[in-house]
Each structure stands twice: as structure tokens, then as C-alpha cells.
Amino acid sequence: MTFFCEREETDSEIKIILKPHSLYVMLLMLAVWLINELVLHSMPVTQIIMPMFIIFMVIRFFSLVKVQKEVLVAMKQGKVQTTGSKFSFSSPFTYTISK
């Protein structure tokens, strides 16, 4: 899914860019849940947010499994370079795998 990561392939390398959007969405859902638990004490909001959070985490996990397997194989071969930060929109975390 392009919401979680982006893959660019050339003749000499593969670039996998992990986008920070999903991380911030998860943090936002956690913040809303905590505010609800500590301040509002509204059970209907909790019954909506927590299942959405869990479903979102599962979708993100299974979307990134293929990417992580590819990166682990390349790491064992010593062909991976990483750049960026997982929190940065301007310089997102990027795996560069040389062929």
C-alpha cells in the first residue's frame, strides 16, 4: 500500500521509502484514546477508537511484512543502506538496496 511505503526500482538499486503518516495516525489515535480515558470518560468513544486502532495496526503490520522480509534478506547479504528518520516528512526513513 502506498500509504505505508513507496518502492522505487531502477537497474542498479531498489529504494523503499517508509512514510511517517501511519506512525502519526497511530499516535493521534492513542492521544485521543488517552484524552478520552483521562478527561472525558466516554465509553462510546473508546469502543470506536480502540478497535479502529487495532485494525489499523494489523493492516500496517501485514502491509510491511513483505518489505521487511526483502530488507532482512538484503541485510544478510550486506546490500542495504538506510537514510532519513521515521518521524520526518521531508527526509523519511529509506532503505536503499543495491542489486
Score class of each variant (00 low, 15 high):
Leu27Phe: 04
Gly84Glu: 00
Met57Pro: 10
Leu34Tyr: 07
Lys76Pro: 09
Gln77Pro: 06
Ile49Asn: 06
Ile16Gly: 00
Phe87Ile: 03
Ile16Ala: 03
Lys69Val: 14
Ile55Glu: 09
Gln47Gly: 15
Glu9Gln: 07
Val65Tyr: 10
Gln47Pro: 09
Glu70Lys: 08
Gly84Ser: 00
Tyr24Trp: 05
Lys86Val: 14
Phe53Gly: 06
Lys66Thr: 12
Arg7Phe: 11
Ile49Ser: 04
Phe4Cys: 07
Met43Glu: 15
Ser63Pro: 05
Met75Pro: 07
Glu6Pro: 07
Met50His: 07
Phe3Trp: 08
Arg7Asn: 12
Lys76Phe: 12
Phe56Pro: 02
Ile97Asn: 01
Leu64Asn: 08
Glu70Gly: 12
Met1Glu: 08
Pro92Ala: 02
Leu40Arg: 04
Asn36Phe: 00
Ile54Phe: 11
Lys15Tyr: 01
Lys79Leu: 10
Ile55Val: 15
Met29Asp: 02
Phe3Lys: 05
Glu37Ser: 15
Leu38Ala: 14
Phe53Asp: 03
Ser12Asp: 10
Phe62Gln: 10
Ser98Trp: 13
Leu72Val: 06
Ser85Glu: 05
Ser63Met: 08
Phe3Thr: 05
Val32Gly: 02
His21Thr: 07
Lys69Gly: 13
Thr96Leu: 00
Lys19Ala: 03
Ile59Asn: 03
Val80Ser: 01
His21Gln: 13
Ser91Asp: 14
Met29Arg: 00
Ile97Leu: 02
Val67Ile: 09
Phe56Asp: 02
Val67Trp: 02
Val58Thr: 09
Phe53Lys: 02
Val25Phe: 03
Thr94Met: 03
Leu23Asp: 01
Ile14Val: 10
Thr10Phe: 05
Ile49Trp: 04
Met75Tyr: 13
Leu28Met: 11
Asn36Glu: 00
Pro20Ala: 01
Ile16Ser: 02
Val67Thr: 04
Glu6Trp: 05
Phe53Asn: 04
Ser91Tyr: 11
Ser90Pro: 09
Gln77Ile: 08
Thr96Met: 01
Phe61Trp: 05
Gln77Ala: 12
Asp11Ile: 11
Phe93Asp: 00
Met29Ser: 04
Ser12Cys: 10
Phe62Val: 08
Cys5Gln: 06
Val73Ser: 11
Asn36Ile: 00
Met29Ala: 05
Val45Arg: 05
Leu30Phe: 13
Val45Trp: 10
Pro20Gln: 02
Ser88Ala: 04
Leu72His: 10
Thr10Glu: 06
Pro20Met: 01
Ser22Phe: 15
Glu9Val: 03
Thr96Glu: 01
Phe3Met: 07
Phe56Glu: 03
Lys19Gly: 01
Phe53Glu: 05
Ile54Met: 10
Leu38Gln: 13
Ser98Met: 14
Ser98Val: 14
Thr10Pro: 07
Ser22Thr: 12
Ile55Lys: 04
Thr10Gln: 03
Phe89Asp: 04
Val39Leu: 10
Met1Tyr: 05
Met52Glu: 06
Lys15Phe: 01
Asn36Leu: 00
Met57Lys: 10
Ala31Lys: 05
Leu18Gly: 03
Ser98Phe: 15
Phe61Val: 02
Glu8Leu: 15
Lys86Gln: 12
Leu28Ala: 14
Ile54Thr: 09
Lys19Cys: 01
Leu30Met: 14
Ser85Thr: 05
Lys15Asn: 06
Leu38Trp: 13
Lys79His: 08
Ser42Tyr: 15
Met1Ile: 09
Phe89Ile: 04
Thr83Pro: 09
